[in-house]
Computed example of a mutant assay.
Amino acid sequence: MDFNLERFVFERVLNEDLTTQAVTLLGSLKPNNDSDSDGLGVPAIVRIERTALPTFSSGLISTTSLIGSTDIYSWMFGWLSPSQDRPDVKINVICPATDVHIRKYSKQQTHIMRETPTLYERIVRPYIDAFPASRTQWIDEVISGRSEGEKILFRSPDSDPFGFLILPDMKWDLTSTASLYLVALMLLPDIKCLRDLTCLHLPLLRSIRREATNAVKTRWGLEATELRLFVHYQPSYYHFHVHIVNANHTGLVGMTVGHAHMLDDIISLLELDEPNGPSIFQRMTLSYDLGEQHGLFAPMKAAQVDYAEA
């Protein structure tokens, strides 16, 4: 849909993050082709974050204002010179935004959950199976080539049963290598999450690691040791994907212990697994943080009582 942010009507702040210098707003947007000035807009989430500071060069700072000084120390406000090639902020828009999106992006307390294989089968798996297809429609658009085809850095042959593609994540500004953020998406929806992985998927995981490091090395000159490849559990959407991030890009949402599982560690665990029987991820108890607005929170929180003294 075609939207102009000048038509955004602010309702409330969902979240502010001082670490990433980002603010998430809830409001409404009207399509540019909607001439009815009195008509209601479509619910929208707008996330605004500061882009990474550019490499310093002469003329970068246009104006300063002294705040104070003492002895050899001074501190001041500064304004960067306007530049068409260096935007000040990056803006992500979700429109129309559903109640699920609003809960996800709202500030919320998190709790640590212990998910046994039994709890996975009883609570989590039914939740995944009921996950609406509309939440992953954007993935179908990318895989089919109807969206973002020009951004794809690597794509397996469609005949590969464990094929995948690699492209920039929407979190990245496509400019600063220091904040590089890519994602590898499975072409087929067979694997939903970490729990589905078995040793049969080792060729897939090794291939993602290899092609991701090759693409980044060729395009941006970063070594394999400068990359952090990880998988989320619980993920934001249940279509298997791997995050590929500059290792020095720290403090991101989703990098907490338990939530992010290093791809190298996943491969190592599966290499220790037996070829027959349930995989290690089907047998493990997994601990992770879950926000109070997450759809799994209420049933998982209630189920924790049974394991509090275990």
Results as ranks from 00 to 15, higher is better:
residue 101 H to F: 09
residue 141 E to F: 05
residue 115 E to T: 02
residue 37 S to K: 15
residue 137 Q to V: 11
residue 86 R to D: 06
residue 106 S to L: 06
residue 238 Y to M: 07
residue 179 S to F: 00
residue 273 D to N: 13
residue 193 C to L: 00
residue 257 V to L: 13
residue 209 R to K: 15
residue 245 V to S: 08
residue 73 Y to A: 14
residue 251 G to Y: 05
residue 269 L to C: 13
residue 143 I to E: 09
residue 69 S to R: 13
residue 218 T to M: 11
residue 278 P to K: 08
residue 128 I to W: 08
residue 79 W to A: 13
residue 44 A to N: 06
residue 107 K to Q: 14
residue 229 L to M: 14
residue 74 S to K: 14
residue 51 T to Y: 01
residue 199 C to I: 09
residue 241 H to T: 08
residue 115 E to R: 03
residue 118 T to M: 07
residue 56 F to T: 12
residue 1 M to Q: 15
residue 49 E to K: 15
residue 223 E to W: 00
residue 117 P to V: 09
residue 240 F to T: 02
residue 103 R to F: 03
residue 206 R to H: 13
residue 102 I to G: 00
residue 151 K to L: 10
residue 191 I to G: 01
residue 276 N to Y: 03
residue 204 L to T: 14
residue 237 Y to I: 09
residue 130 A to N: 15
residue 224 A to Y: 01
residue 184 A to R: 08
residue 252 L to P: 10
residue 228 R to D: 03
residue 31 P to R: 10
residue 130 A to D: 13
residue 14 L to V: 01
residue 130 A to T: 14
residue 205 L to V: 04
residue 251 G to A: 12
residue 254 G to Q: 05
residue 188 L to T: 08
residue 246 N to I: 04
residue 153 L to N: 07
residue 170 M to G: 08
residue 261 H to L: 09
residue 52 A to T: 14
residue 21 Q to K: 15
residue 162 F to H: 12
residue 307 Y to N: 07
residue 262 M to K: 12
residue 249 H to V: 03
residue 224 A to C: 10
residue 283 R to A: 12
residue 33 N to A: 08
residue 92 N to I: 06
residue 258 G to V: 01
residue 38 D to R: 14
residue 171 K to N: 15
residue 129 D to P: 00
residue 124 V to M: 06
residue 208 I to L: 07
residue 218 T to G: 00
residue 233 Y to W: 08
residue 275 P to Q: 13
residue 101 H to G: 09
residue 297 F to Q: 04
residue 65 S to G: 06
residue 18 L to Q: 15
residue 92 N to Y: 06
residue 89 V to P: 07
residue 133 A to E: 15
residue 184 A to T: 03
residue 116 T to G: 04
residue 89 V to I: 04
residue 265 D to C: 05
residue 306 D to L: 13
residue 215 A to Y: 00
residue 235 P to I: 00
residue 55 T to K: 11
residue 114 R to S: 10
residue 47 R to H: 13
residue 20 T to F: 02
residue 120 Y to N: 12
residue 14 L to A: 03
residue 35 S to I: 09
residue 264 D to T: 13
residue 299 P to Y: 08
residue 241 H to R: 06
residue 19 T to I: 10
residue 99 D to E: 15
residue 148 E to G: 07
residue 104 K to H: 12
residue 163 G to F: 01
residue 240 F to W: 09
residue 210 R to M: 11
residue 204 L to S: 04
